[in-house]
Write a protein that binds this DNA or RNA. Structure first.
Length: 638
RNA sequence: GCCGACGUAGCUCAACAGGCAGAGCAGCUGACUUGUAAUCAGCAGGUUACCGGUUCAAAUCCGGUCGUCGGCUCCA
């Protein structure tokens, strides 16, 4: 009989009979794989453990510890859920059911109403299926067979999927007990391998992500090979929710949201401290980098929006008002205003690049279901800038902005993801001009060796863009910074500069934000720091806690001295025990507490307590001030 | 906008299956003069989101509106 050579990951080469099953050689590789192996990678291709080896090749065993193994596991759990749902709801039609980060979902078209109350029943049925321990059996079918199978089953969405598969695609189905599903695989060996799982939520989701398609019901869940891992994950979710900016924002008195203004946040004085610090920093850094600050009106005439293209492309997101019988709009973007300023003077090529920066308040009518605390609102301040430049300056200007984003985000200790979005279906301008702009962005990123993903067709209607995304407490990402090239608006507004040849030329325009929206950025910051802001941003930087009434004068003296150094200081003069005051200050996440009693007053020193760290001991006030001035100036993040 | 859930005091949450809406924290008043995460006592606080319906009786059941939460779509 023929033999096959198998190259293992540890460098060993083994020989087996032709057609040996991967699962049968697991014990020889490592005994722990008998229990832990979920799938395998043969010659780089993910396969089932039940696969026969019919050629020489490299073999790698996949477990839950591998990212791919985790996906196989979660996806298998999704199949178990689908089987349970089909048992409980005859006539349900299957959509798709992939693994996602930390879980899985499956989309269903239910013949009856389905609500989150029904999840428990599905979970119970899943438990049965797991106990029944059906093997996952793979079968490969021809296109005709597959089409017949799924149309006989009434699975119209699966039929649609098969029809859209490329000509040469291998079509496979997986069976477990009475359940059969179109699936590329691989899967874990049997349903019994799913040990700990939980269904988390049910949500609507359009079939294939399009509003024009029917809405299916999506059930989200997660699964782990150990109960303790599931519990740990759920615990972590709970912990993360405590960092939610909507919760912390109220607790710390930073902002509030009211029914009277959905999507229009109210900032309290402590929230304004953070905003003002961010803006002060922003102004300083932009001045250094050659930006000129401008301010343009919030309400502008309809004719401007017609000229800019917003009237045609953005109207459903805009608010309108009437002044003296003519229509005006609340600006959804700052660009047309900046262009009007550009046009107030004859510009020379020697003036370019011109960098107009504007903290501009924009209003956008967002659909009611998308509002989300400070992250998604209907009025927000963009830390905008519009750069007018020569075509030859494009690359350097893009790099300049990318450096600025990197400089800013590093100060806050953010890790960020970069995405490039290309021409959308509803766009202004020719394909050529889009390609030119898109390539400019690509070149700049590649020049900086930046990792990025491409979002086809996700660009703004006037140009392609680079987006910078940051994560919130639950790992959801939000677009913050963005760089958008624009060849359209200069055209529409017929802006120009005089070149060395004495002729008029068209400048290129670039829109960009660093924070993105100040509101969103504050939301991200709250979650990133869990409310414990670094000293330079903390609304109250120091609280002085006198032990008893007789120490109040001394506390007020210290307050004055710190205020002279421009620190934000409060004295907790309440008639309470020191432990109580400390607790309050800790909950308010105030960076420094100064405790003053008889000893401190007598020697003119302070007892320093640091947020979350505790007692730092006694120091002189001058020493303390030096230390915190340094910390503030360096924007130290703990 | 769509799917699902939710909305009770400033906050966190109770109130079996329709039968007088309750607690802790916060607030106010008083006592205590306090040493590194909650001192004690008292007082006050509500048109149960809003509108309508069913009922002898609605926080509770039904319908609608608004808002919020988790998603989808859309986006900074």
């Amino acid at each position: 009989m023929d033999k096959v050579k198998v190259f293992l990951k540890n460098g060993e080469v083994k020989e087996y009979d032709y057609g040996v099953l991967i699962k049968d050689i697991l014990p020889e590789i490592n005994k722990r794989y008998i229990k832990e192996a979920l799938a395998a990678k043969f010659n780089g291709e993910l396969v089932d453990l039940s696969k026969k080896i019919t050629e020489d090749g490299s073999l790698e065993i996949i477990t839950f510890n591998d990212e791919e193994g985790k996906k196989v596991y979660l996806h298998s759990a999704a199949h178990v859920m689908a089987q349970a749902v089909k048992r409980l709801f005859p006539g349900v039609k299957l959509g798709i059911g992939p693994a996602i980060e930390n879980g899985f979902y499956y989309d269903f078209d239910f013949p009856v109403d389905f609500s989150s109350d029904d999840l428990a029943a599905v979970e119970d049925e899943m438990a049965k299926i797991i106990k029944e321990d059906y093997p996952f059996i793979r079968r490969e079918l021809s296109r005709q067979e597959a089409l017949k199978l799924f149309s006989d089953l009434g699975e119209k969405y699966k039929v649609e999927l098969i029809e859209d598969l490329p000509e040469d695609a291998v079509i496979s189905v997986y069976e477990q007990g009475e359940f059969i599903d179109l699936c590329a695989g691989p899967h874990v060996p049997s349903t019994g391998r799913i040990k700990a799982f939980k269904l988390l939520s049910v949500a609507g989701a359009y079939w294939r992500g399009s509003e024009n398609n029917p809405m299916l019901k999506r059930i989200y869940g997660t699964a782990f090979p150990k109960k303790s891992m599931l519990e740990e994950y759920l615990q972590k979710l709970e912990e993360a929710k405590k960092r939610d900016h909507r919760k912390l924002g109220v607790q710390l008195g930073l902002f509030s949201l009211h029914e009277e203004g959905p999507g229009f946040p109210f900032f309290h004085s402590k929230g304004m401290v953070i905003i003002n610090e961010l803006e002060n920093f922003w102004r300083k850094e932009h001045k250094i980098r050659g930006y000129q600050e401008i301010k343009t009106p919030i309400i502008l005439n309809r004719s401007l929006w017609e000229q800019s293209g917003h009237w045609d492309h953005y109207k459903e997101n805009m608010y309108f008002t009437e002044i003296d019988n003519s229509t005006y709009a609340l600006k959804p973007m700052n660009c047309p205003g900046a262009i009007l300023i550009y046009k107030t003077e004859q510009r020379s090529y020697r003036d370019l690049p011109i960098r107009f920066a504007e903290l501009g308040l924009v209003h956008r009518h967002e659909r009611s279901g998308v509002l989300h605390g400070l992250m998604r609102v209907r009025a927000f301040t963009q830390d905008d800038a519009h750069i007018f430049m020569l075509p030859s300056q494009i690359k350097d200007e893009i790099i300049g902005v990318m450096d600025l984003v990197d400089y800013f985000y590093n100060i806050f200790g953010f890790e960020y993801m970069v995405e490039l979005s290309t021409k959308p279906p509803k766009a202004m301008g020719s394909d050529e001009i889009w390609e030119q702009a898109t390539n400019a962005l690509k070149e700049a990123m590649e020049g900086k060796n930046m990792d990025y993903v491409i979002n086809e067709g996700e660009g703004a209607f006037y140009g392609p863009k680079i987006d910078f995304h940051l994560k919130d407490c639950l790992g959801r990402t939000w677009q913050c910074g963005t760089i958008q090239l624009d060849f359209m608006l200069p055209e529409k507004f017929d802006i120009n500069y005089i070149g060395p040849d004495g002729e008029k030329h068209r400048p290129v325009m670039l829109h960009r934000v660093i924070f993105g929206s100040i509101e969103r950025f504050v939301g991200i910051l709250i979650e990133h720091y869990g409310g414990a802001f670094p000293l330079w941003l903390a609304p109250v930087q120091i609280v002085i806690l006198p032990i008893a009434d007789r120490h109040l004068d001394y506390a007020l003296d210290i307050k004055k001295m710190l205020e002279r150094e421009d620190f934000r200081v409060e004295v907790d003069a309440r008639n309470e025990k020191i432990g109580y005051k400390i607790r309050e200050a800790e909950i308010q996440k105030i960076p420094y507490m100064l405790i003053v009693g008889d000893a401190e007053k007598e020697k003119e020193i302070v007892s320093v307590r640091k947020r979350r760290e505790g007692d730092l001991g006694l120091v002189s006030l001058t020493e303390f001030i030096e230390k915190i001035k340094f910390e503030r100036a360096n924007k130290t993040v703990q």
